[in-house]
């Protein structure tokens, strides 16, 4: 087992984590970002970003690479695709074990593990992922030329993606569990006036069926409980995001009822020396700009915390 020491460790290299990395490294604190996946987080999933101020139009991949380069240029160390095998945030010196062979120690932690698309968690979903079930219209839309597809969800993403999928599909059915949509009015109007779109409201999919690929779904009417089989070529699922906080279950960090991290206005968690930023936290608006803002606030408070600890140490010597 190898041991390495840092001033601060950031879990997650999305926009929140990368921003925190930039600020902490610029403050000359020895900083490490650990990510279990690709650096950039959900930004990488976005083909086009048009609402990040100061950057006219870019891809999520480009914006991620620029942020990553910036962080590295200030001395921040970054490791991607790591497996976190154990954590101890309660002791004064925090510990994170990675890949079962290295333990990182630090004075402070920032949790910036973001979120991921929610899945339906029903029979057949894993089997037909990539074989008819998709979570990315821009990536997979063209496999469904002249096919019949379902879009699940009632938010902005579901309705906007349903409209964009009509470029390929001959028919798009929007299956949504309520009788009204959470999406903004203009998104609903766009979908309503599209002739290729039909609405299957107050309904939910209960099972996916097929052989080599998806062939049909079972749909239940929530009011009547009537279940029918609908033959279909593809299903796109857009039912929102959930915080990546499973690894904190049964740990000391306080989560709310949706498993989002509870923080105070300094983005400090209930544990001393542990801060949180971005989509993993309880908040209303989940955007790159808000993640970047959280990254800044958490980093500045983390720096202050570390320096105050160092100061106390100096006083006591």
């Amino acid at each position: 087992m190898q041991d390495q020491n840092y001033d601060a460790i950031i879990l997650g290299g999305g926009p929140a984590g990368l921003t925190a990395g930039i600020y902490l490294s610029r403050a000359k604190l020895k900083t490490l970002i650990l990510d279990q996946g690709i650096i950039g987080g959900q930004m990488v999933l976005s083909y086009e970003i048009a609402n990040y101020p100061g950057v006219e139009k870019t891809t999520g991949f480009q914006l991620s690479n620029t942020m990553k380069k910036q962080a590295i240029s200030f001395g921040c160390q970054i490791q991607s695709n790591v497996k976190i095998t154990s954590i101890d945030f309660e002791s004064e010196t925090k510990k994170i074990e990675v890949n079962g062979n290295t333990t990182f120690h630090s004075k402070a932690i920032i949790i910036a593990t973001g979120g991921k698309s929610r899945s339906l968690n029903i029979d057949g979903e894993d089997t037909f992922k990539g074989k008819g079930i998709s979570y990315c219209a821009t990536c997979d839309g063209d496999f469904f030329q002249d096919k019949k597809i379902i879009v699940v969800g009632g938010g902005n993403t579901a309705l906007e993606e349903a409209v964009s999928l009509t470029k390929y599909a001959k028919k798009v059915s929007i299956v949504h569990q309520f009788d009204n949509f959470q999406a903004l009015e203009h998104a609903v109007e766009e979908a309503e006036k599209n002739e290729k779109i039909e609405f299957v409201l107050e309904s939910r999919i209960t099972e996916f069926k097929g052989d080599d690929s998806l062939k049909s779904v079972m749909i239940e009417n929530i009011n009547t409980k009537e279940v029918r089989e609908k033959s279909i070529d593809g299903v796109f699922i857009f039912i929102g995001y959930e915080a990546n906080t499973n690894f904190l279950n049964n740990k000391c960090i306080k989560l709310n009822q949706w498993n989002e991290i509870e923080v105070n206005k300094n983005l400090q968690t209930n544990i001393e020396g542990v801060f949180a930023a971005g989509d993993a936290c309880q908040k209303r608006y989940r955007q790159i700009t808000t993640a970047v803002s959280d990254g800044t606030i958490s980093a500045l408070n983390t720096a202050e915390y570390i320096l105050s600890k160092k100061g106390k140490l100096a006083e006591s010597v």
Binding site: I38, I39, V44, Y47, G60, F61, S80, T138, C139
Partner: peptide, 16 residues
């Protein structure tokens, strides 16, 4: 694949 959102993470894993 393409230079798309679902492909980039796989290339990244392979490079590493």
């Amino acid at each position: 694949g393409r230079m798309g959102p679902m492909c980039l993470p796989v290339y990244d894993v392979m490079e590493q």
